[in-house]
Each structure stands twice: as structure tokens, then as C-alpha cells.
Design a protein around this nucleic acid. Structure first.
Lengths: 142, 142
DNA sequence: GAAGGATAGTTGACGGGTCAATTAAATAGG
DNA sequence: CCTATTTAATTGACCCGTCAACTATCCTTC
């Protein structure tokens, strides 16, 4: 699957391969896409929140937010209403059923992360986290 | 951008954030998408190759291969012909111009990886690579 | 208070990936 | 031989993200 390349090329390939693996496996395990769970997670720890705040927390395109929320609304997990104090903003909140479901999703996510990090001890996890942060920082600096 | 979560949750978030950053930045730097460059890279070190072999090397969906190759063909980087010995398979090869261009793409990629891994010494790169491999392995085992 | 600019959200088009169904060719097996 | 199966590639439909254009509301400021 991989040819003869420099070590550093390998790291890039690995990052890409890893990413290709993570999302589908996550979704298969948790029963929801990572992004949607992040949305629900945010909503979970807040009574009600505007789409724009949600978008800033999650850091994806407003268009994506709109469509995800539309889907989540159709599945009865969330509800939306206009902010009477400012008709531009729509306020989003978990429905009771949504709040209920998030519990089990979070359990699945926990299990998923355990499997993902199986074999990594505390020190290694910290090292990995630091390295990922450094990579992120390098990326941001481009 | 991130709430209060367990350390391990952080790692998953970081992986996702990193991935979100890498591809667009790569494309901006190198002038081509990572996947397409991987395709070209494979083609570069081979005279001619069937789509199916290419697909197995790159490990993406056949549909994606078809569409990428269509694009690369339109831009004059590659050419395709039927395998006279087996009319099911189409053989793909770099055009001379394509082969020429790959050189500069590879330069850009190198620069990109240097920036990405800036501040990582040899030992750290090795550690990172090992960890990514272990993560990949954990994923595959799901 | 009307004009102009910011802000929130939606929509459409597009790139990149998946899966499922289809076509065309090759290969077995009765 | 002719059918049945496998294989390579393509296509269409969908999900997820982006960007750009648009609408609607609010806020200035003159």
C-alpha cells in the first residue's frame, strides 16, 4: 500500500490514512457522525445557543451548520426558534429526547476513544497530544 | 474553540482539526490536492499501470479514481488506453508534460512537509510515526 | 428617518469521498 | 458451445465540507 518514500512523507501519508479511517469507524461505532456529535455535545452543555456561536465553537462552515441542524431537527433531536430580541439569530436547543440520546452517544464515543488509544499509556497520550498540537500550530502558521 | 473534556477526547478533536487543516493547506501550497498528487506519484514511478492497481495502491473508491483520472486527463497530465490483452482494464500513464510537472509538485510537497514537521527532531519524528502507525492499527482492528 | 454597512442564516454549485447498480469483457464449467 | 461467474470500470445518488451569492434584520450616522 505504500511505496519507498522518505520517513517524513510517511508521516503525511499516515495522517491521511488515519483520517480516512477515523470518521467512518467512529460513525459505525457511535451511530452518528463525529461532527454531529460535536454539535450535540455543545448543545448538551448549554441551555440554548445561537447558530453562529455554535458555528464558532465547532469551526465549520455556516452552510454545513444549517444542513446538519436541519437534519437533526428532522430527527427530533433539536429544536430551533427565532431570537425575539434579534430576528437574525436562530436559537438552537436539544429536545428532551435529544438530550437523552446524547448520553448514549457519549458512551459510545468514550468506548471508541478507548479502542483508538488502546496500548497508549498516560505518558504516551500526553506526548501524542503535544505533538498533535505542535502540528496544528505549524499548520496554522502557513 | 474547545470545551472542558477529557484528555483523550482532546486527542480525537485534535486529529479531526488537524485533518481539516492539512488538506486545504497542502493544496494551497502544492497547487494540487493530496490525493491527486498521490496518484501522480504512483504513476511517476511506473511506466504504465492499470486503474485497478492504482486504486489498490492509493486505497480509494474506484469511482473516485475514475473521476480523478478524468480530470487529470483533461488537464493533459496523464493518458489512458485500453489494455489490448484484456479489454476490461485501462492502462494509465503520465504524459511527458505530466512527468515534468510532477517534479515541481514533489518539490512543493517536500517544502510542505518540512513546514508541517518544523521543530520536530529525528527522534520525535520517529516517535510520531510509530504512534500514528499504532493508531492506524487500532482503527483497523475495529 | 433613510441610506449604508455589518451580521445571521440560507441556498446553489462544486470538490472529494462513499456505496449500489450497471455495462462490458474475460473466464469457467457443464 | 453456451451459460454463469468474476472482474474492471463507469455512473448516479448521497454525505460532508467549502465558497460565493443572496436575503433579511439590525445598527449607524447623518
Amino acid at each position: 500500500m505504500t511505496g519507498c518514500q522518505s520517513e517524513d512523507d510517511q508521516i503525511l501519508e499516515l495522517l491521511q490514512a488515519l483520517n480516512k479511517g477515523v470518521s467512518p469507524k467512529f460513525e459505525r461505532c457511535a451511530g452518528i457522525s463525529p461532527t454531529r456529535l460535536r454539535l450535540l455535545h455543545q448543545l448538551f452543555q448549554v441551555e440554548e445557543i445561537s447558530q453562529i456561536s455554535l458555528q464558532r465553537e465547532i469551526d465549520i462552515d455556516p452552510a454545513a451548520i444549517t444542513r446538519h441542524l436541519k437534519g437533526l431537527e428532522e430527527s427530533g433531536m433539536i429544536s430551533r426558534r427565532n431570537n425575539p430580541a434579534d430576528n437574525r439569530v436562530t436559537l438552537v436547543s436539544l429536545t428532551p429526547q435529544g438530550r437523552e440520546r446524547v448520553h448514549s452517544y457519549k458512551e459510545e464515543k468514550k468506548r471508541f476513544i478507548s479502542s483508538l488509544l488502546a496500548g497508549f499509556d498516560e505518558a504516551e497520550r500526553k506526548t501524542l497530544e503535544d505533538m498533535l498540537i505542535r502540528l496544528q500550530h505549524n499548520i496554522n502558521g502557513m
